[in-house]
């Protein structure tokens, strides 16, 4: 009986939390944009959320591309198929690893920072003081951060895939001796713009939406204490990562299983 009560309580909490998150996001985004005030805020957040995530994306993308090339080469060369190294790396990155790994890294780097920042603003009454100054914190604080995350992540995922392919070229062509012309030309022939690149971008947009939404909501709804902020930051990273992986399976099934 206790278990049923607990399960029911958890379900009610989940649904009411989801409802509050939807109301928060719609209240933050459903208003007439004010370019004069909104653009500087958006640019500041694009720098904080996007530009400052570049280093981890560049380094991770390069190493993942290099490892993919090394692993791929050792398997493909056994079948005399090392010419397929280029498309193998490119398709892995564009369809899966680019969007997914960059979303996971983004949740850890930018998502946690967004939650902690908004949570701390709540704990130090900065959000309350905005309300009392007749400035809506949803529009002033939440909206620019949400849009910055939504714009940044697809761009970061594209950069991740690009440097990954360059890393694979470095290992496959410059180190292991795969022919450079073959590497690029087979890749060009095998990779489809709509089927591979565009689907990867669509995945990124979905991931950007959910990761940033979770991050801003967790910060906005956290308990305004040091423990509450810590719990919210952890929840952002864990929940974002799980949602990204689950959503990736659904999107992959819809895009590529047919």
């Amino acid at each position: 009986m206790k278990q049923i009560h607990f399960l029911g309580q958890q379900t009610v909490n989940l649904i009411s939390g989801l409802g509050r998150a939807v109301i928060m996001l719609t209240s933050a985004l459903m208003h007439r944009p004010n370019v004069r005030k909104g653009l500087p805020l958006l640019l500041t957040q694009l720098y904080a959320v996007g530009v400052q995530s570049l280093i981890i994306i560049l380094v991770s993308g390069t190493f993942i591309g290099m490892v993919l090339a090394l692993q791929g080469y050792t398997i493909l060369v056994g079948y005399g198929a090392e010419a397929s190294l280029g498309p193998m790396v490119a398709l892995s990155l564009l369809r899966e690893l680019g969007p997914v790994v960059s979303a996971l890294l983004f949740a850890g780097r930018a998502g946690s920072a967004l939650t902690a920042e908004i949570g701390l603003m709540k704990a130090t009454e900065q959000l309350s003081s905005l309300e009392m100054m007749a400035v809506d914190p949803l529009r002033r604080v939440i909206a620019p951060r949400f849009w910055a995350g939504f714009i940044s992540l697809p761009l970061l995922a594209a950069i991740f895939s690009m440097v990954g392919i360059l890393g694979a070229h470095l290992v496959g062509v410059d180190w292991l001796g795969v022919d450079g012309g073959t590497f690029w030309s087979v890749m060009q022939a095998q990779v489809d713009f709509q089927g591979d690149i565009l689907n990867g971008v669509i995945k990124s947009l979905f991931f950007a939406f959910v990761v940033t939404w979770i991050a801003v909501y967790k910060g906005y709804s956290c308990d305004p204490t040091s423990e509450g902020i810590s719990r919210a930051t952890t929840a952002t990273v864990v929940q974002s990562s799980l949602v990204v992986l689950g959503l990736d399976f659904i999107l992959t099934a819809l895009m590529f299983a047919g």
Binding site: L120, T124, E125, Q126, S128, S129, M132, M133, A134, V135
Partner: peptide
């Protein structure tokens, strides 16, 4: 709320702005 204001116990100054920017903030907003 534009006709009232509140002095919070913690001050609640915006930590990413200077003192000048904090005081200019409501003027720029309203």
């Amino acid at each position: 709320r534009k006709r009232m204001s509140m002095l919070f116990q913690s001050g609640a100054l915006f930590s990413d702005m200077s003192v000048y920017e904090n005081i200019a903030f409501p003027m720029r907003e309203h």
